[in-house]
Amino acid sequence: MKKDEEFMPRILAFLCNWCSYAGADLAGTSRLKYPPSILPIRVMCSSRVDPLFIVKAYLGGIDGVLLAGCHPGDCHYEKGNYYTRRRFALIKKIFEELDMEADRLLLSWISASEGPKYAKVATEFTEKIKKLGENPAKNKIFL
């Protein structure tokens, strides 16, 4: 990255197949504008995401991790996202306790019809990460 170039974060987004991925799709087909910072990974359910995926991504140097699923009560598998929420709370707390920029992690509920919400979350999260700057793990050798 050249010095005068603006920092564009790289954000990993775990999107659940039934809601958030469809929401992201809708944002695209509706031609809504949002920053090109998101690297989406489609998972069948947000509860498929092992908190260790998040740790691995963070240590690998990703600037932010977005975890998105169906709204509570709307999970395709009925209760997957409730477990997601507890696991996310756990890993976020660990990051907080280790003083490791828990703000780089985000949990959001985005339904299949919420294309605008997806665009909004993507934009706002990107802005937040821009303020935080690059992930310090990127250049660390002793991991």
């Binding site: 409730y82 477990y83 929420r85 756990l90 976020k92 949990l107 959001s108 979350v121």
Partner: peptide, 14 residues
Amino acid sequence: LLTFEKDELSEVED
């Protein structure tokens, strides 16, 4: 981690 409440932890959600 093996159980949940339907209404909880709103502070970790966006």
